[in-house]
Amino acid sequence: MAIDVRPKVGAQAKVPTGGGTRLKRPRPYREWLTSYVFLIPAIIVIGGFTFVAMGVALFLSFFKYDLFTLQWNDIHNYIKAVGNADFHKAMLNVVYYMLVVVTLQTILALTIALVLDRIMAGRGVFRTVYYLPAITSSVVMGLIFSWLFTPGGWVGTAVGGVFPGLRNFGWLLDPGTALPAIMTTTIWSTAATFMIVFVSGLQDIPAQLYEAARIDGAVGWRSLWNITLPLLRPTIFLVTVLGTIGTLQVFDQVYVMTNGGPLKSTLTPVFLIYTEAFRDYSVGLACAEAFILFLIIFTFTLIQRRFIDTTIEY
């Protein structure tokens, strides 16, 4: 309380007095202790459920484990995973899914954001409407789209207007169209989230740049190509990275819409790991596959990170 005696602290705040500082500053180890107290919940949750869990997964990937008996299995889980036809199929499916969804949702989100950025009024209304699918649970949207895609359903009726032969086509029952149907569902629901990211990225571009470019004669497409897109690069990469991570983990839509079928055409790694661990109780194999998948995602992310880091300097 002695400190209160000092008059007008604010006026001389920038001039530290030796004695006062020594008295006020708590000994550092107390601050250390306080810090760790503040961090306890985060350390327990993230340490336990991520780092310890990773260790457990690595450990189990070398064992045969059916939730009851644990048996050393050397690297046979990894050998089995690498040779597993279902795992190959799942990886191919998810890469196909990722490439299509990330490309289309990024282009769609960017296009809408660019259009929204150019209209005079009513931006908020459109943004709200477009954002509605993003807040809808993936189960709900999976169920709605399963219904829309049924033979003779709304999609069939709409497409059948142009190609009458497709009116009764079972989009989710054909190995060639089941995954694209799920892609459509996903793009419909995620494009809006990324659109909002793009809208704010666009607002961060200084207006003077467009002004200067206009004086130099760059308008319309040229201003889009030479100013907007290059300056939006960090945002584009952010959207791509988030999209990649998200699409590689697709599960809910598959579970609700196709259950991995038909003919495993919509089998994805997370769905495969889920069924192997929790339906077949091949926990060791599931962990080995999860690790292989993790290494692939990790590599992907690192590669993409390099791009982000180089673009931050703009």
Binding site: A53, I245, L248, V270, A277, A286, C287
Partner: peptide, 9 residues
């Protein structure tokens, strides 16, 4: 670290 790696452990 995605959920599929940690969900089983």
């Amino acid at each position: 670290i995605p959920l599929q790696v940690t969900m089983v452990p």
